[in-house]
Design a protein around this nucleic acid. Structure first.
Lengths: 346, 346
DNA sequence: ATGAAAGCGCTAACAC
DNA sequence: GTGTTAGCGCTTTCAT
């Protein structure tokens, strides 16, 4: 502890050059004679000198930090995306400042403030209030204050704000699922979990209803079980489904957590997946891989997703042309949880 | 975008006071007359002014940032701890800068550099090379360069360095497990997963062997199955166990992932947990809660763990007295995966 | 209590 | 190519 920190002045003095020259060799933004460069580089190595990022940011008004605001990193979906964002950011020379909103509006606000104080070059928000079907206007106002100075990228809806949107194509996801399920012969298809006040869930519901019609399947209210996004919700939705006179032959779970809960409810009642019932989910987190049976799930290509998010941020920072709204195309990862409808079940 | 940012000079001018006064009302570190304070506070609200953290850090050489270096945030264990650290840090007025090492030594190094450049006030490292039974000396040297100026806190071993250590009491964990398992009548106890080059695993092994002896149980090499920390490892370790002449009546998995894999292997062979075999794990992540059956697992009280980590960091930053080595006391969370040994199994 | 001014460590014009 | 200098926006003596 407590050794005085070295600065470019110390390096400059010992190398017999000016601080500006040291700065030049560090930033590589201007040319320096080989002799001086090598002298400086030698000293940098000798003292293991690292420029003070604060001073640097203050001076050139770029922090090279991307604020990443996620709902809850303990959720594998956010964790997967966050890691990819971090890797993508690193590749572009950016560092990520990650904060959790933990479903707490105040925390969401204060984290946003913090990012602003830290003068992050852009903020990427994934989850929480940005996902609301109808955006909270106070929140939108808050975001707009930020977008006046910093690009704001989100995977949510957040209307009434001047932000960049990269959304998952939920309509397409549902289409893929229906295509797969109907190709397996399923006609009694249920959808469980999720809150319809969230845009992504709302869109799934709408599309579910539409596709039931389009495929000439009978839509039944009781095949649409709202819950939240937890394992518990999946459990209780599935339980309710299994109490029905005529249980579905295929169930779509809003995410992997609810699918896992549904699996448990099914197992308890002696319903085997996929032999007695098919189950399919969204998100394709590691839970799909470790559950028994492994889940067939809709994947978003997280590496590409993260890269795209960062690319938008970086382009926006550099004031390059970049579309304000883009879509992520989902694809189905087929594992073990679905199978052909059993003829005996009708 | 692009509105010129407001500074304390703007506020000062409009309020008819000096920048120093504005700074005083912001920092609250000196007294200001009520009239001027209110004028300044009004303008701060009016413009929603937020001081530039870079400038502030440059000037007072404290960033109020804690670097948090974790192995992989996608792993629920790290995620749980990281979130608690973030919450604890927030409470103390600190922000967390989270980076993943992703099991990549270069990334580990570069993230450490980045934290240093960012002049974080302390770094907390959880996982990766700090856990090695025998510390890499180049890495230790790197850490020592950092500890010359910044407190370094770790949950690992990392000997040969001047850091603060907060370790899980693995010996105690194993004791608790044995106490529980033997009280249920188990005598054929196996341990699966983990690499013994990691200190925490090494300690568990040692203690396992010791306790087998102490409880007068026969130690068998084939009841000790090394793997890594993945679900796959759990699956293959358990598979090997189930091929033995005499299978164990209770299995200890090194973490929840391996336990989940073990569960799958058991199910495939028709072995029911806990009726036919008891299974117990370490870490008590959310996997323990959502697996079927729910896992009995050793918990570390993550909120307290995170708080302690941050407390050590903050105390060290403030140069207060604080012990260099402390232990986290584990406790068992009993769920569904263990039961009394079936007498019929001997 | 308050203002003037120096300084934190760096970058970037601007001269030469 | 290289040095000089003026900031970047804040905190903090030091006077008053």
């Amino acid at each position: 502890m407590d050794k005085k920190e070295i600065t470019i002045y110390d390096i400059a003095e010992e190398a017999g050059v000016s601080p500006a020259t040291v700065s030049r060799v560090i930033t590589k933004r201007a040319s320096v004679s080989t002799a001086k460069r090598e002298a400086v580089e030698g000293l940098i190595r000798k003292y293991k000198f690292r420029p003070n990022a604060m001073a640097r940011s203050l001076s050139d008004t770029k922090t090279k930090i991307l604020g990443l605001l996620v709902a809850d990193i303990r959720n594998p979906y956010y964790a997967a995306l966050a890691v990819e964002c971090e890797e993508a950011a690193n590749k572009c020379g950016y560092t990520v400042m990650l904060c959790n909103t933990l479903n707490d509006d105040e925390l969401e606000d204060s984290n946003l403030e913090k990012m602003y104080e830290q003068r992050v070059d852009a903020v990427i928000q994934i989850g929480c209030r940005v996902d609301d079907l109808v955006s909270d206007s106070a929140y939108a106002a808050h975001v707009n204050r930020i977008t006046r100075t910093i690009p704001f990228i989100t995977t949510g809806k957040l209307d009434g704000t001047d932000c960049y949107r990269l959304n998952i194509d939920d309509v397409e996801s549902m289409k893929i699922i229906f295509q797969y399920l109907t190709s397996l012969g399923h006609r009694r298809i249920a959808l469980i979990g999720g809150e319809k006040r969230k845009k992504s869930t709302y869109d799934k519901w709408q599309q579910y209803i539409y596709l039931m019609g389009k495929n000439d399947l009978t839509f039944r209210e009781d095949y649409l079980q709202e819950g939240d996004y937890s394992e518990k919700a999946g459990y209780s939705c599935m339980t309710r489904l299994l109490e029905l006179q005529e249980i579905p032959t295929a169930v779509i779970a809003v995410n992997d957590f609810t699918a896992v809960g549904a699996l448990k409810a099914a197992a308890e009642r002696g319903i085997r997946v996929p032999q007695d019932m098919s189950l399919i989910s969204f998100d394709n987190t590691f839970l799909s891989e470790i559950s028994t049976p492994k889940l067939t799930s809709v994947d978003y290509d997280y590496p590409a997703f993260g890269e795209k998010l960062v690319e938008i941020a970086v382009k926006a920072i550099e004031k390059k042309e970049i579309s304000r709204e883009q879509l992520i195309t989902p694809k189905l990862v087929i594992r073990e949880s679905c199978t052909k409808r059993q003829q005996t079940h009708g």
